[in-house]
Design a protein around this nucleic acid. Structure first.
Lengths: 189, 189
DNA sequence: GGTCTCATGTAAATAGTTACATGATTAT
DNA sequence: ATAATCATGTAACTATTTACATGAGACC
């Protein structure tokens, strides 16, 4: 079974938390791994169907008395095996695409004012992100008292925090540098 | 002309450095923006054709005496306009996909030894990357004495350095934490 | 009655990688 | 000779987003 999309192990991983619908999975992913791994409905639903076909999940149709249409998926033993196999494969790095850096790379061809605007916006986004991490942290810390799993979630949170902080510091440095460049040659462009 | 791929402005940006072939562009991109923006041949060649069709570049076939088949592309005024238009559009953030974090997120379902192995590999890759930045830095610094453009390139380099350093520090922190977890429960898998 | 959230799914477009085919030239 | 590099390009596949279609139940 070599042709499962990358979304497959992700969904299997989340389904170890308990049976869920595609809709639930989307919400749970958005609330946890969004900053380093996200999935859209366009990937989730087709992947669930393929997981079902391969017997890696089961589907129960919750449509009894008054319940609305809802497909709840549960991981099977074969699904757990597949997940474990995936966890044994060394992860690969994929270079990100950071559009602001690309524009800044060609920054000589735009006004410093514009570049400053972009960096300021970026900084504001990072600050928001860092704040969200700050809200999440105490919840995870409390949860990790009696459970081992949240300690791993905290590691990924820490990654976000550290990189956010580094990027914010970078913004400040670059904003100073851009202000300098603007001073040197204020009538340019 | 609303249907140009994202690769288009990238190529136009590099062509402001001077006329180049698709092969040259690939090398130049690999040598400069690779860590935050890379392109493959499968994107470069088809995009060059589309840029040519729209008159954003011109092509001269260098196949005179003994020269091998080689298409050299040069940016046109319309191409410069298109590039400037693109630079005026605010960049958008796209969340990266960091597979190691996804695996670590489900780390409770694998052995600590395996997780440690992954983080160590990741750390080694980051160290290499940081070293490459260190080699590049003096070249750019020297170049920025008499030219404004390298100062922008240095800004993007600084981004890589800061984030690399942050990630390396994170690796060390996580490695300690994983060693802890392994101590707590050495026979777990 | 209207809007919000729940809920499922598909279609189309865009993005991007990888592998392949081809062949010339240059260095060992 | 033969391996590496120069050089162009395409095809097939994989990945991913976005927008749309649909409709029920909950809340105001």
């Amino acid at each position: 079974m070599p042709d499962l999309p990358r979304t497959a192990p992700t969904l299997l991983g989340f389904l170890t938390w308990g049976p869920m619908s595609g809709y639930d999975l989307k919400k749970v992913i958005d609330g946890s791994t969004r900053n380093f791994w996200s999935e859209s409905y366009g990937q989730i639903y087709p992947t669930l169907r393929r997981l079902l076909e391969r017997g890696l999940v089961t589907r129960s149709d919750e449509s009894g008395d008054s319940a609305r249409k809802r497909h709840v998926y549960a991981i099977t033993e074969a699904g757990r095996d597949e997940l474990r196999r995936w966890l044994e494969v060394a992860p690969e790095r994929q270079p990100p695409r950071v559009e602001i850096l690309l524009k800044l790379f060609f920054g000589n061809q735009m006004s410093c004012a514009r570049a400053i605007e972009y960096v300021e916006t970026y900084r504001a986004e990072l600050t928001d992100e860092l704040e969200r991490y700050g809200e999440m942290r105490p919840l995870l810390e409390r949860a990790s008292d009696n459970d081992r799993a949240p300690r791993f979630w905290l590691m990924t949170l820490r990654y976000g925090e550290r990189n956010c902080e580094a990027s914010i510091a970078w913004c400040d440095e670059v904003l100073a540098e851009l202000a300098d460049l603007e001073q040197d040659d204020p009538h340019r462009d």
